[in-house]
Design a protein around this nucleic acid. Sequence first.
DNA 1: ATGGTTGCCAAGCAA
Length: 268
Amino acid sequence: MKFRLATWNINSVRLRLPLVERFVRAYRPDVLCLQEIKCVEEVFPLIPLQALGFPHIRINGQAGYHGVATLSRFPLEARGNENFCGSGQARHLAVAFDGGRVVVHNIYVPAGGDIPDPDENPKFKHKLTYLRALADWSACCAFGDQDRHILTGDFNVAPLENDVWSHKQLLKVVSHTPIEVEHLARLQKSGNWVDVIRRYVPEDEKLYTWWSYRARDWQSSNRGRRLDHIWTTPALADAVQSMLVVEEARGWQQPSDHVPVIADFDLA
DNA sequence: ATGGTTGCCAAGCAA
């Protein structure tokens, strides 16, 4: 079985429905994980997205903030929404397809506010707590050699030096602080997760999936960060055939500040 | 060092 999986922090699915349509027509993902849909299920644009070729859609929505949805051409089985660390925010959605043989966890890790100090900034504390809860959950899953899980979404952490435009200048900027990177590393170890995107771009090369709205010209300043990730359990890692970071989407009309990230799988 | 933009929903918060 072959499938193309994409993840995209859409920053309001209702506002950017035309961009989702444009992306899907051009890149034809089979499974699309959206984050920051910023709406409840009742007002999610279900009909147009089904018409776009995704009859199977699961939503974990919230009014105004956060929220994730997973769209699929294949039938999906619900696998629950974890309420990591009990915040009550809609940040996780698990589904399975291929008769339950592939599980996709769509996550939106808290951004963490501006001050990188958990004692001063409750949002940063929440981010660290959330990442610890994810690691505990992942360790608890105790994935076996044959378990095919994908952990994808907006992790809001750029772990490697070349996942940001300037490692030195971002050491105290939330998303690239050593403590967040440590927390993400612990999560990665807890499930033996493989960062499949970085397999295609050497660690000494820059790779970004997000560019701030605040730059006058995102392209020329190119101060990006790699915040969006596709991780798999080892059983799936070698099934990945290629990947793509759809940088052009940052230049589309009224864009999200994140761009889609794609991985192509072939289950031999 | 600072301020820069965007979306929700109609003021200020979250990112």
